[in-house]
């Protein structure tokens, strides 16, 4: 099991940028945990224990002025938790408390060199998603629908493939540290839904335009070396992914919130040369294709030249205009964007 403790300053920086999303999720954990505690308190106790609890809740002002036992007798008791279900509720409660103890490390995963990026992200989300699994377990147990065969283990891992529409809206953000050589983000499309935010912090040499392949009409995609650009991810309405890459990689932002045309794809830096060497399992062709794909999209939107700025020198020069197939693809994506009304 790799250690999921942030070491890279860029990773902690990314967590800070995503602070609001982390806090929202943390708040949801707190709210759920408190609600569950109330449920357990209200539903499980004997009359005697309830009176004890009432005494505690009424506080010192009641001493001498209120007859606690009489008062407790008038309290509405919650729906009792069935004895057989109590252990599930308690397990769920423990899960939530243990997640709270993680603090911000709950929103961080480290991908060991050579390991699969998609698997690591699934693991990270599945871990934070245990909160959803715990909440579902509670509801299932209370409504008598809990089935060990189907639902057992949801408090241990609850992968995003099981998340409901609402849960995806509450999705925990994730910061992922990964080697450039393992930057194969294609599989991450599976998780980019609802309000999911993912930031990849790339170590070492990286393929120049890995995230370009994720550009679809409704997805915010950012590839940058400047942590300040991550703000767009935090503020995005909808799913978003970003990668912090080396200075010599492509730097761009695809922003679905921008009006259909202008500003949708801003390419800030494009390497002057196409990749020459394979990187990990990524061939030269694969790396080049991603870069050409980005150029084609930019050209298709007619934006690459005027929108390109080169903070790091001569980056303004853009590879040759893309082939007509890419033009068509870009045009198609653009049309989709307009029709979907997501722009």
């Amino acid at each position: 099991m790799p250690s999921d403790m942030t070491t890279d300053e860029r990773a902690s920086g990314a967590l800070r940028v995503l602070e609001k999303a982390c806090e929202d999720y943390h708040s949801a954990l707190v709210a759920t945990s408190e609600e569950l505690r109330s449920l357990l308190d209200a539903g499980s106790a004997t009359a005697e224990a309830r009176a004890g609890r009432t005494a505690a809740e009424l506080g010192a002002f009641a001493v001498g002025h209120i007859d606690i036992e009489k008062f407790a007798a008038f309290e509405r008791t919650g729906e009792p938790v069935a004895v057989t279900e109590a252990p599930r509720l308690e397990a769920a409660s423990r899960t939530l408390l243990s997640l709270l103890e993680h603090g911000n490390d709950l929103y961080y995963v480290n991908v060991d060199p050579g390991a699969d990026l998609r698997d690591a992200v699934a693991r990270g989300l599945g871990r934070a998603g245990r909160a959803f699994g715990a909440a579902r377990t509670v509801e299932l147990a209370r409504s008598g629908k809990y089935d060990e065969a189907t639902h057992g283990g949801w408090t241990d891992s609850f992968p995003p493939t099981l998340w409901s529409r609402r849960e995806k809206q509450l999705a925990p953000p994730l910061v992922v540290e990964v080697d450039g050589a393992d930057l194969r983000p294609g599989g991450l499309a599976d998780f980019l839904d609802g309000e999911q935010k993912i930031v990849l912090v790339v170590r070492g040499v990286a393929p120049p335009a890995a995230l370009a392949r994720l550009i679809t009409p409704g997805l915010l995609v950012v590839q940058t070396e400047n942590p300040a650009d991550l703000g767009a991810v935090a503020e995005a309405a909808g799913p978003a992914i970003a990668a912090l890459v080396p200075a010599d990689a492509c730097h761009f932002t695809h922003s679905p919130a921008a009006d259909g045309g202008r500003g949708r794809l801003v390419v800030r830096h494009m390497p002057t040369e196409e990749p020459k060497r394979p990187l990990g399992s990524l061939s030269v062709f694969q790396q080049t294709e991603a870069m050409r794909h980005l150029a084609a999209l930019a050209a298709g939107w007619g934006l690459s030249a005027p929108e390109t700025t080169a903070p790091s020198g001569d980056g303004a020069s853009v590879p040759a205009p893309a082939a007509s197939a890419a033009d068509n693809l870009a045009a198609w994506i653009l049309r989709q964007a307009d029709i979907s009304g997501m722009g």
């Binding site: 609600e35 109330s38 449920l39 505690a56 506080g59 010192a60 409504s143």
Partner: peptide, 17 residues
């Protein structure tokens, strides 16, 4: 000085179906 008790904060209202 009061010895603070988390129980003072009470339970959340019942929201079961």
């Amino acid at each position: 000085r009061p010895t603070l008790d988390p129980a003072w904060q009470g339970s959340l209202p019942d929201m079961s179906p």
